[in-house]
Write a protein that binds this DNA or RNA. Structure first.
Length: 595
RNA sequence: GGCCUGGUAGUUCAGUUGGUUAGAACGCUAGCCUGUCACGCUAGAGGCCGAGGGUUCGAGUCCCUUCCAGGUCGCCA
C-alpha cells in the first residue's frame, strides 16, 4: 500500500553529486537502474532526470536494509538516506558524472515495485520503435530521450526570452476555429450546440495573428500547436508545434533581422555555436536553377548545369523532345565519379530518379579516350565537347542527365544531388549553412484544378514592383515571401502580408473565389481590413524540425513526448478509437462505412 | 492510393535446398559470491515463427490474402 514519502525528503538529485558533497548526509529518490549483488556487498545505480549515482549497501547494515536492498529490481522506485563517500582511486567510474563518489545507504524505502520492463532503460536503445512507443513512459526514461525533451524546453525558453526582450507579446489563439478548406486537410470537431456544424483545429494561427496586428498588438508570438490531416513522414506529424511570429510596420528586412537574432540566441544557448549574420539570401529562381530545390543544402557542390541549348539539336530523341515540349535537359557532374560509382550504382540511381517521376537518367562516364555511355552514339563530337566544357568535366568525371518538364528535372536532380552527396559522403556535418530563399512566385498554376493557387498562402503580399503584373502575367509575380533553410531543411517561412482589402479581394479573385465565396470564408478578415490595418508580416518555424536538427535526431518523433505513428494513431493510448453511440447521438453524427 | 524494407523468446537477431525436438546473446527466475559498475559462476524457465488460407508426405522457409511498423512518392495553401 502507498505510504507517502515514508518520512524522507529529497535533498539532492542523483546526477549532481560531486566530490564537494563528500561527508554530507543526503536523501535521494529515483529508479533503480541496476542491482549488482556481490554477496556481502551490493551496489544499486540510482537514476533520476539528472543522471545516476552508485549506492552501496553492506551486509552488516542495520535494520534489514541489506535484505531489502537485495530485493530491489530494475526500475523499482526507491528513496534512500545515506552518506556521500569518496571512492577509492581504483574504483572510480569515469563513465558517469558522479563516478568519483558513492552513497553509503543508511535507510531505504521501496516506494513502488516494477514489472520487468519490456526493454532496457539505457542510452542508444536499439529496440523497435513500435515497442518503445507502446511503452512511451519507459522510453522517455532513457537518458537520450530525457536529454531531447529537456533541450526542447530550453530552446522554448530561449525563444520566449528573446521575443520578450524584443517587445513581443505571447498571445494564445483559439484551437476551435472556422474551417478554411484551402491548403491541408482540416481536422474537424463536431459542435454539440450547433447540430451539423463543425469547428476545425488550426493548421496555423495565420488569420488570428493578422487580426492581432489589426488590433494594435504590434508584435505577437506564440509557441502554437497546429494540426494538419495529411500523411505522416519522418519529419511530419499530424499535430506539431510552430514558433509563430507577427510584426506590424515592417518590411522583409525587418522580419529577417529579428529572426536571425532569434536563431543566433538559440544556437548560442543550446549548441554553444556562434553563427554569423546576416545569412546569405538566394532568390527562388536561382535556388531552383543551381540546386533544383527551394530548400537547397549548400554544404556541397554538385550544382545543376543547364545543357538544353546544346542537347536540343542532338540525335537523342528524349533530349530533343524535352526541349521541344518546353522542358529542359540538365546535368550534374560527379567529380571523380568514374571510380566511385559502379555500373550497379548507376542503375540504382536510375531507379532513384524514377521515384520523382523522371522517365530515366542518362549517364556519361568520361574516360581518357572515349565516352562510356548508353547515349554516346547519339552525341556528336561537338555536342560532347560543348557539354564537357560547360560542365567543367575532366577525365574520371561522371555526368548525369535528366530531360523532362522543368518541374520534374528540378525535383529529380535536386534529390539526386542529395542522394549522391550522402552516398559519397560529401557533406561536412560540422557546418551550419543558414540561407534565406526569397522572391518566391506568388502563384502557381494547378493543372488538375485548372486554376491558380497560392504558393505560400492567399494573404501573402506581391512585391511592390510586381503588383501591376497581377493583371497581365500572374505567374510572373514574385511574393514578399521568404523561407529560412538550414543545411537543406526548411526551418520556417513567412511573408509580408496584404493589408489592403482591395488587394486582398483581387488576390481572392485570382485564386478563383467569387466575391460571395471570399466573403463567406474570409469576410471577417476583409471587414477587419476596412478599419485601419498596419502593414505587417511574420514568420513561422517548425519547432519540431528545429529540435530534430539541434539534437541530431533522425525523426521528429524523437523530439516529441508522445508522437503518433505513420497511420496517425498513438500506440500507447490507442487513439483514435470508436466512441459510445450516446456521444455520437448528442453530436447528431451517424457513421457511414467507407466501403 | 502506389513503391520499397521488415515482423521468429521479454529485447536484439540467426535459422542452409522445404526435412527430426526452432537456436544465440542480453534480459528474467533460483542458488553462490565483500569492490562491482556490461560484475562473475552454476542451474532453470521462457516460442500461436504477426494473422488467415493454399501448395506439399512434410512449411519459420514456397504461393495468395490480410494486419502491424518503418522509409518514400502522391498529398502537406
Amino acid at each position: 500500500m502507498q505510504k507517502g514519502l515514508a518520512g524522507l525528503k529529497r535533498t539532492n538529485y542523483c546526477g549532481e553529486l560531486t566530490k564537494s558533497d563528500v561527508g554530507n548526509t543526503v536523501t535521494l529518490m529515483g529508479w533503480a537502474a541496476k542491482n549488482r549483488d556481490l554477496g556481502g556487498v551490493l551496489f544499486i545505480d540510482l537514476r533520476d532526470r539528472t543522471g545516476m549515482v552508485q549506492l552501496v549497501v553492506n551486509e552488516r547494515a542495520k535494520d534489514g536494509i541489506f535484505e531489502r536492498a537485495e530485493g530491489v529490481r530494475s526500475e523499482y522506485v526507491i528513496g534512500i538516506e545515506g552518506v556521500v563517500r569518496l571512492r577509492d582511486a581504483e574504483t572510480v567510474n569515469k563513465n558517469i558524472s558522479t563516478g568519483e563518489v558513492e552513497v553509503v545507504v543508511n535507510s531505504l524505502v521501496i516506494y513502488s515495485k516494477s514489472q520487468t520492463p519490456p526493454f532496457y532503460i539505457e542510452e542508444d536503445s536499439d529496440t523497435n520503435e513500435q515497442v518503445r512507443l507502446k511503452y512511451r513512459y519507459l522510453d522517455l526514461r532513457r537518458p537520450d530521450m530525457q536529454k531531447n525533451i529537456i533541450l526542447r524546453h530550453k530552446a522554448c525558453k530561449v525563444v520566449r526570452d528573446y521575443f520578450d526582450k524584443n517587445g513581443f507579446l505571447e498571445i494564445e489563439t483559439p484551437m476551435l476555429i472556422k474551417s478554411t478548406p484551402e491548403g491541408a486537410r482540416d481536422y474537424l470537431v463536431p459542435s454539440r450546440v450547433h447540430n451539423g456544424a463543425f469547428y476545425a483545429l488550426p493548421q496555423s494561427p495565420q488569420l488570428y495573428k493578422q487580426l492581432l496586428m489589426v488590433a494594435g498588438m504590434d508584435r505577437y508570438f506564440q509557441i502554437a500547436r497546429c494540426f494538419r490531416d495529411e500523411d505522416l513522414r519522418a519529419d511530419r506529424q499530424p499535430e506539431f508545434t510552430q514558433i509563430d511570429i507577427e510584426m506590424s510596420f515592417v518590411d522583409i528586412d525587418d522580419v529577417i533581422a529579428v529572426n536571425e537574432g532569434m536563431l543566433v540566441d538559440v544556437f548560442h544557448e543550446i549548441m554553444g555555436v556562434k553563427i554569423e549574420t546576416p545569412f546569405e539570401r538566394l532568390p527562388y529562381d536561382e535556388a531552383m536553377e543551381r540546386f533544383g530545390s527551394d530548400k537547397p543544402d549548400t554544404r556541397f557542390g554538385l550544382e545543376l548545369i543547364n545543357v538544353t541549348d546544346i542537347a536540343k539539336g542532338c540525335g537523342f530523341k528524349v533530349f530533343a523532345d524535352a526541349e521541344a515540349s518546353g522542358g529542359s535537359v540538365r546535368a550534374i557532374n560527379v567529380k571523380g565519379g568514374a571510380d566511385k560509382l559502379s555500373r550497379r550504382d548507376l542503375d540504382s540511381l536510375v531507379d532513384f530518379v524514377k521515384t520523382y517521376r523522371a522517365k530515366g537518367l542518362a549517364w556519361v562516364i568520361i574516360t581518357k579516350d572515349e565516352l562510356k555511355s548508353p547515349i554516346a552514339k547519339f552525341l556528336s563530337t561537338d555536342d560532347v565537347n560543348s557539354i564537357i566544357q560547360r560542365a567543367g568535366a575532366v577525365v574520371g568525371d561522371v555526368l548525369l542527365f535528366v530531360a523532362d518538364k522543368d518541374e520534374i528535372v528540378f525535383d529529380a536532380l535536386g534529390n539526386l544531388r542529395l542522394e549522391i552527396a550522402c552516398r559519397l559522403d560529401l557533406i561536412d556535418k560540422s557546418k551550419f549553412n543558414f540561407l534565406w530563399v526569397t522572391d518566391f512566385p506568388l502563384l502557381e498554376y494547378d493543372d488538375e484544378q485548372k486554376k491558380y493557387v497560392a504558393k505560400h498562402h492567399p494573404f501573402t503580399s506581391p512585391k511592390d514592383e510586381d503588383v501591376e503584373l497581377l493583371d497581365v502575367d500572374p505567374l510572373k509575380v514574385r511574393a514578399k515571401a521568404y523561407d529560412i533553410i538550414l543545411n537543406g531543411t526548411e526551418l520556417g517561412g513567412g511573408s509580408i502580408r496584404i493589408y489592403d482589402s482591395n488587394l486582398q479581394k483581387k488576390m481572392f479573385s485570382l485564386l478563383g473565389f467569387s466575391d460571395e465565396e471570399a466573403h463567406k470564408r474570409f469576410g471577417y478578415l476583409l471587414d477587419a481590413f476596412k478599419y485601419g490595418t498596419p502593414p505587417h508580416g511574420g514568420m513561422a518555424y517548425g519547432l519540431d524540425r528545429l529540435m530534430m536538427l539541434l539534437t541530431g535526431s533522425n525523426s521528429i518523433r524523437d523530439v516529441m513526448a508522445f508522437p503518433k505513428v505513420q497511420n496517425a494513431s498513438e500506440l500507447m493510448t490507442n487513439a483514435p478509437d470508436i466512441v459510445d453511440r450516446k456521444q455520437l447521438m448528442e453530436l447528431g453524427i451517424k457513421i457511414v462505412s467507407n466501403e
